[in-house]
């Protein structure tokens, strides 16, 4: 039969002593250790997430800059094209299309890289979360096991006090034994267990730090990639502008050349026509002159002239 007597005072005292001892030597160190672990692991995860966010924002920013640069290059190129001759518009259009294709190709590459990077970072995040979950799970199991160790001792102490009127001495004795047991357990088993767990936490922290380092390396690599893409973008823009400028110059040059050829051709035509006119005039003069000579000869050639001609021709005659 349970009775309330003076022994309750000892029970209360024993309880507070035990509570103090447990709080001082067990709960506080363990909670501190857990807090530290949480701080370290969650900090790493947060850091990894931060890196991912940074990469994502970088991509968004880069995409924006890419579009702006492409747009600016196209606008400038458009201005140059507007200045060119209309008949050369098709060539310019081809150049613009080529540039557009290059840009489109680059955009696709960037989009692909972005998807790949996000995928990689997501994989990393998954790994982190999985690792953290596993570590938390291990901790939960250890806490439950620790609680089970303490339960039988309390029950045993309560049962002995009810059977024995001199239980108070036994309870003191039991408490001393419990305290001794706790100290022994602390020094031997719990201490070893906490040490082992401490090593595990250290390892987890190191793993998290390694993962973070990997994420940092990945981020750095991605930033480098972004920097390269930036230079590529600049290169594309330069290329577009150089081509547009070259096309414009070529168009003007071709126009100049066409005008020159046209003038030259017109000059040749004029020269040819003048030459032809001269020939026609000369022909007409020749025809008129010969016709007049024929009339004169027909009128003026006398018999003596004919005889003189025949004699002279006969004298000069050569058959072979």
């Amino acid at each position: 039969m349970l009775e309330i007597d003076y022994s309750i005072t000892y029970q209360i005292a024993a309880f507070f002593v035990l509570l103090f001892a447990l709080n001082r030597f067990l709960y506080k160190p363990v909670f501190a250790m857990l807090e530290e672990r949480k701080r370290l692991t969650e900090g790493t995860v947060k850091s990894a997430s931060s890196m991912e966010e940074e990469a994502r924002q970088g991509l968004v920013e880069y995409e924006k800059r890419l579009k702006e640069a492409a747009k600016a290059a196209q606008e400038e190129s458009g201005v140059l094209r507007d200045k060119a001759l209309m008949k050369e518009a098709e060539i310019m259009e081809a150049a613009r299309e080529e540039a557009q294709e290059e840009l489109q190709k680059m955009r696709l590459e960037i989009a692909s890289d972005k998807v790949s990077a996000v995928k990689d970072l997501k994989q990393e995040a998954k790994g982190f979360s999985k690792s953290i979950a596993e570590k938390i799970l291990e901790r939960s199991v250890a806490a439950i096991a620790l609680a089970i160790v303490f339960l039988p001792s309390d029950v045993f102490a309560e049962g002995v006090a009810e059977e024995n009127p001199y239980g108070m001495y036994w309870k003191i004795f039991n408490f001393i034994l419990l305290a001794i047991g706790i100290v022994v357990a602390w020094k031997k088993w719990i201490s070893v267990s906490l040490d082992a767990r401490s090593v595990g936490i250290k390892k987890a922290m190191e793993d998290a730090a390694g993962a973070k380092a990997e994420a940092e390396a990945r981020l750095a690599e991605y930033k480098e990639k972004l920097a390269l893409l930036e230079s590529k973008l600049s290169e594309i823009k330069d290329k577009i502008m150089a081509e547009a400028e070259a096309d414009r110059e070529r168009i003007f040059k071709e126009a100049d050349e066409s005008v020159r050829k046209l003038k030259e051709q017109a000059g040749l035509f004029a020269e040819q026509e003048v030459k032809q006119a001269k020939i026609e005039i000369r022909n007409e003069v020749a025809v008129i002159a010969v016709e007049m000579a024929r009339e004169i000869l027909s009128r003026e050639l006398k018999a003596e002239d004919q005889e003189r001609i025949l004699k002279g021709y006969t004298e000069r005659l050569r058959v072979n």
Binding site: A286, A289, V290, A293, I309, Y313, V319
Partner: peptide, 20 residues
């Protein structure tokens, strides 16, 4: 088949050709 042309007509034609 040999023709020796010493006619005034042919001389006029030659003169015309030279003028042309």
């Amino acid at each position: 088949n040999t023709i020796l042309d010493g006619s005034v007509k042919t001389q006029l034609e030659k003169a015309k050709e030279k003028l042309l």
